[in-house]
């Protein structure tokens, strides 16, 4: 069982000074076209770089729909990271956060 959190809860809880890491695992082109602000891009072709992530930070992972990111969270969790899958992925982020004011 992997850790999961909804996009909304993640966006609500994150602060400007949090040092959690947000990882977008989609293709570079998709990342550059639009991603969640603050995300770093690790593509499947660069999957070995997952292990460059610092172990002392909490890692949040997303993809387009939330499925492949779950696999990545399993890999990270096995390797000793504290990692969370963002349920619904970038699609869910777009549905809930584009054009809307920050939820209070």
């Amino acid at each position: 069982m992997i850790n999961e959190i909804s996009i909304c809860e993640y966006m609500k809880n994150r602060t400007d000074d949090s040092d959690d890491i947000l990882v977008d695992i989609r293709e570079k082109m998709m990342y550059e076209f639009g991603s969640i602000p603050g995300a770093v891009n690790i593509t499947m072709d660069n999957i070995r770089h997952l292990y460059d992530l610092p172990k002392d930070k909490t890692i949040y992972v997303f993809c387009q729909a939330g499925e492949i990111s779950g696999e990545i969270v399993e890999i990270l969790s096995d390797a000793g990271y504290t990692a969370y899958n963002l349920i619904g992925g970038y699609r869910e982020y777009l549905r809930n956060h584009i054009g809307l004011k920050e939820e209070s």
């Binding site: 499947m44 997952l50 492949i68 696999e71 990545i72 399993e74 890999i75 096995d78």
Partner: peptide
């Protein structure tokens, strides 16, 4: 189990298949 970096690369085409994934 912990996958090595080489294994991450080697099996990456399996990880993204819904029917296989990391657990498979």
């Amino acid at each position: 189990m912990i996958f090595s970096e080489e294994q991450l690369e080697r099996y990456s085409r399996h990880f993204v298949l819904r029917e296989i994934g990391v657990s498979g």
